Amino acid sequence: MTNLSQKATTLLELHKPGNPVVLPTVWDVWSANLAISAGFTALTVGSHPVSDSLGKPDNEGITFEELLTRVSQITSAVDAPLSVDIEAGYGQDPKRLIDGLISAGAVGLNIEDTVHSEGGRLREAQEHADFVGSLRAASDATDVHVVINARTDLFVKQIGDENGRVDRAIARLKLAAAAGADSLYPVGFHNDADYKRLATELPLPINAIANPADGDLAHFAELGVGRISFGPLFQASLSKHAEGILARWK
Rank of each mutant, 00 (worst) to 15 (best):
I159K: 15
D113G: 08
A8C: 02
L135N: 13
G100V: 03
E60G: 08
E66M: 10
V71H: 10
V115Y: 05
R151D: 11
G244I: 02
Q73K: 13
A80Y: 05
K240N: 13
H219D: 09
H241L: 14
R136E: 04
Y195A: 11
G224F: 01
A218L: 11
A32F: 07
A35S: 11
N207W: 11
F40C: 07
N207H: 07
L43A: 02
I62M: 14
R70H: 01
V147M: 07
H190W: 15
G160F: 14
L54F: 08
E65S: 06
G39Y: 06
T63N: 09
E87D: 03
Q158R: 15
L154K: 06
T114E: 14
G18C: 13
V132C: 05
N163H: 11
L23D: 00
G180W: 03
A169V: 04
L12W: 01
F131Q: 14
V166P: 06
K56S: 06
G231C: 08
D85T: 01
G160W: 15
S5D: 13
K95P: 00
T9W: 09
E124W: 00
I36H: 01
N211H: 14
D113Y: 12
G164E: 09
E65P: 00
G108F: 00
L246K: 14
A179T: 00
K7D: 13
L184Q: 09
L246Y: 09
